[in-house]
Design a protein around this nucleic acid. Structure first.
Length: 830
RNA sequence: GCGAAAGUGGCGGAAUUGGUAUACGCGCUAGACUUAGGAUCUAGUCCCGAGAGAUCGGGUUGGGGGUUCGAGUCCCCUCUUUCGCACCA
């Protein structure tokens, strides 16, 4: 009569049924029915690059998302949970080079495998909205977007020093350089001067910054990272005359108020003036060689704190416009070419770096701010004076204290004399979007001998990637060797032209895909603005922290661009963001606990785990492992705890008939049932899935005890059991659907409504009250829940244990916390 | 160096507002059943001391101090770890 828990059969059955009934499919046109606005909810998980096999570490994102999705459905929300493929990118192309498989075939094969893995996890994606960035009907809109950004001047091409990864053989955006190395392969990045395509994200810097303030549903951490990345600084620009060159050199400073202390200028060795400044220098060749060395120093080393400051005196002088003095002009490696104007006014008295450099090179130091009362000899100044003191020796400003107001006065003063102005500078650079690789969106422009660079008209889109291309791994983009692709006609004059062979960064693909989910098959436009305005923004976005300043910044930027094009009403695409923590595991390779990844060889395959213990087990364990926002270490042993729990739940159903028709303690089991509904619901609301699992285990234990001791009636046990099944459904969908069906219910648990708890049922008539004497636990007493202070006090004082501890003392005060405890504060009997 | 988060049993962790610290699970110990299996079930399991025993006493949330009848939770100091930023003018 008893059937063992056969997870394989159960899971296969329900996965099949969900697929057939298209359980997650949402009709987008019906969204926003007049009376049910709040029923519509868009849930989204980070797109996954289709290059890597999924392991249990990846599962956390999707399992979490699916649990939330099912919870929303049971709470009556028409939730949309789409999934797509971030299909372009290097892994596919590398596979082509290494294994001779075409990137397209390799990608499609991977998508198939990954889709099967999602199915085996029991994740309900709405596959009718499926998109893949490598399909021309998707990437043609990247091209369309590019052309419109080009028209508006937001996309442009320029020669610039750029990050080059020698291993990936392509340029990288600043955001893809982590600690001076390629984000993907870890190779140190070098600088090259190349002509590249950029998106003018810097034009949106302020809006990207301001938008963060309204994102209350985002983790503070991510917002801080984005603020740092944008790196807004307010200050001023100051012009210094270079008499010998008959030029004006502009520097940026956040401290224009220290200009009287500027005793020399420092330019980045890469500064455009450098060559002319040293033109007449006796050691010109030596300095040029040094500039070359600095230029070739990897960025990690150059910007490391311990990297020694190195500089060269150009021999030229500049005029300090505030003092009229001649000051020397230097080149030094500690000034970065890409920040500000690539040149600084050095104020050694009030800047640590300038002071260090001045001491090293024997350059003069002059104080602007003086600490009160004491006279300081500039020659002996050991530390810069940063935010203290008052101004002396700067005639119109003497006596002013450090502060924003003083800075403002200086800027006005400079502006009136024409050598300075207010200026805001950002750390953020424009987004370099061109890549010298095949497997990406072709940039839709051609180069014509007579017309130069010509953007293609919209009706010539998409520019499709040619399939017939050779992947040799040789230097250079395989696309540029495809004659049929490169050779074309100019749309303007009809003459011969060459196609652009650079392709787009894959982050372009993912920066607007959330909108395409809402119009996945629209052949006439990027997306339907009407549908977009009804569904956007995404209510809940779930993914790892690794995209804090990549994808999440780019997507916000493109959303604002589309907003400015009048295509979508919102400016911020993601209302709530949840970052789940990484799964780690011990790695034999390194002997340490590390992020689970293929390269570290510490992955756990979901396939074997699912075969052995089932997807429900993996899901419950993954959610039980710890708070989802924190990192968690995978334990192979602990997984079996989740399996045992599910097996016990299975057996409970078979034991239900053992319960007697009537029994004494129904109230208690019923109270546990309501308390569990309350706790699990609250846990779900704050994404605390680990405590939800714990509460469900407790209810299961209570029910098992009631059955064992025959203390609850059959009806009451069944109620408790089926509440347990419902509450467990988002976490372990297969087993719960099966148990529900075996009970005789025909509707899917997804269509049942989430259990409600009754506050009155949580109430007890008699409660156990903790008794403390001087804050120490001494006894517990049973009292009526309604008992008043005097009544409780009498019962408490009657306790023998309490009386023992009161020997020789008297009660000075009794504190009653209703429903919880009474604390007796004593003093020695007089 | 700056900023943020966090330190609780052998381990993962719980304790939403200051009110029984260690829920739930892993592991471990003992026992039951057994076609002796890494299955299942039952009981025990923060530390120290006393007791044959049910029990009793004391201590414990990185360390030190404070507020309070009462502190894992609030405040101050300090140590450690993790993350982010870092020659950004």
């Amino acid at each position: 009569m008893s059937t063992p828990y056969d997870h394989k059969a159960v899971e296969a059955k329900w996965q099949d049924r969900w697929e057939k009934t298209r359980a997650a499919e949402v009709d987008l046109r019906h969204a926003g029915d007049s009376h049910s606005q709040d029923k519509y909810y868009m849930l989204m998980m980070f797109p996954y690059p289709s290059g890597d096999r999924l392991h249990v570490g990846h599962g956390r994102n999707y399992i979490l998302g699916d649990a939330l999705y099912r919870y929303l459905r049971m709470n009556g929300k028409r939730a949309l949970n789409p999934m797509g493929w971030d299909a372009f990118g290097l892994p596919a192309e590398n596979a082509a080079i290494q294994r001779g498989i075409h990137p397209n075939d390799w990608t499609l094969a991977n998508i198939k495998v990954m889709k099967e893995q999602f199915r085996r996890w029991g994740i309900l994606f709405d596959w009718s909205k499926e998109i893949a960035s490598c399909f021309p009907d998707y990437y043609r809109w990247n091209q369309w977007l590019f052309l419109h950004m080009l028209e508006k001047g937001i996309a442009y091409k320029k020669m610039a020093p750029v990050n080059w990864c020698p291993s990936c053989q392509t340029v990288l955006a600043n955001e893809q350089v982590v600690d001076g190395a390629c984000e993907r392969c870890g190779t140190p990045v070098i600088q090259r001067d190349l002509e590249q395509w950029f998106f003018r994200i810097t034009g949106y810097a302020d809006r990207l910054l301001e938008g963060l303030d309204g994102l209350e549903g985002w983790p503070e951490k991510v917002k801080v990272m984005q603020r740092n990345w944008i790196g807004r600084s307010e200050g001023g620009e100051v012009d210094f005359r270079l008499p010998a060159m008959e030029e004006t050199l502009t520097v940026f400073t956040t401290r224009p108020d220290t200009i009287h202390g500027a005793t020399f200028l420092v330019l980045a060795p890469e500064h455009p003036f450098a060559a002319r400044l040293i033109a007449g220098h006796p050691d010109r060749a030596g300095i040029e060689a040094w500039i070359e060395t600095v230029r070739n120093t990897p960025r990690i080393q150059r910007s490391a704190e311990e990297n020694p400051k190195e500089g060269r005196d150009t021999g030229a002088v500049a005029i300090n416009p505030a003092t009229g003095e001649e000051i020397p002009v230097w080149l030094a490696n500690y000034v970065l070419p890409e920040y500000g104007t690539g040149a600084i006014m050095a104020v050694p008295a009030h800047d640590a770096r300038d002071l260090a450099f001045a001491r090293q090179e024997g350059l003069p130091v002059r104080l602007v701010y003086h600490p009160e009362g004491e006279a300081i000899d500039p020659a002996s100044l050991a530390e810069p004076i940063l935010h203290e003191g008052v101004i002396r020796n700067a005639p119109p400003f003497d006596g002013l204290a450090d502060g924003a107001e003083t800075i403002g006065k200086f800027i006005d003063w400079m502006a009136a004399r024409g050598f300075g102005r207010r200026k805001v500078v950002y750390r953020l650079r424009d987004w370099l979007i061109s890549r010298q690789r095949y497997w990406g969106t072709p940039i839709p422009v051609v180069y014509c001998e007579t017309d130069g660079m010509v953007p293609l008209p919209d009706d010539q889109l998409p520019v499709e990637l040619p399939y017939d291309v050779e992947f040799t791994g040789r230097e250079g983009n395989p696309l540029s060797r495809s004659k049929s692709f490169v050779e074309t006609r100019c749309p303007k004059c009809g003459g011969p032209a060459r196609r652009e062979t650079d392709t787009m960064d894959t982050f372009v693909d993912s920066s607007w895909y959330y909108l395409r989910y809402l119009s996945p098959r629209d052949a006439t436009r990027m997306f339907d603005p009407e549908i977009a305005n009804r569904w956007m923004p995404v209510d809940q976005y779930i993914g790892g922290i690794e995209h804090a300043i990549l994808h999440l910044l780019y997507a916000r930027f493109i959303c604002k661009v589309l907003h400015d094009f009048g295509m979508v009403g919102i400016e911020e695409p993601f209302q709530n963001l949840f970052n789940q923590g990484m799964i780690t595991r011990f790695s034999d390779k390194s002997g340490r606990v590390e992020k689970m990844s293929k390269s570290r060889g510490n992955t756990v395959s979901p396939d074997e785990l699912i075969d052995e213990m089932g997807a429900d087990t993996e899901r419950v364990y993954t959610l039980f492992i710890g708070p989802p926002e924190k990192e968690a270490e995978w334990s192979d042993e602990a997984v079996s705890g989740a399996y045992r729990f599910l097996s016990r739940v299975w057996r409970l159903q078979e034991r239900l008939p053992e319960a007697p028709p009537t029994a004494p303690s129904d109230v208690e089991l019923e109270r546990d049932r309501h308390a569990t509904i309350q706790r699990v619901t609250q846990s779900f609301e704050r994404f605390s899935f680990n405590t939800a699992v714990a509460s469900l285990m407790e209810l299961s234990n209570s029910l098992a005890r009631a059955l064992e001791e025959k203390t609850a009636s059959r009806l009451c046990c069944e109620e408790a059991f089926y509440t347990l099944v419902q509450l467990l459904h988002p976490l372990a969908p297969h087993i719960t659907e099966e148990l529900w069906e075996r009970r005789g219910y025909t509707e899917s648990l997804l269509d049942t409504s989430w259990p409600r708890y009754d506050e009155a049922k949580l109430h007890r008539d008699r409660i156990s009250l903790v008794v403390q004497v001087d804050g120490k636990l001494r006894d517990r007493v049973e009292v009526d829940a309604t008992a008043g202070e005097t009544e409780v006090r009498a019962i408490v004082l009657a306790s023998p244990k309490v009386r023992e501890h009161l020997a020789g003392r008297e009660v000075a005060k009794a504190v009653l916390v209703p429903g919880r405890l009474m604390n007796l504060v004593t003093r020695k009997t007089a």
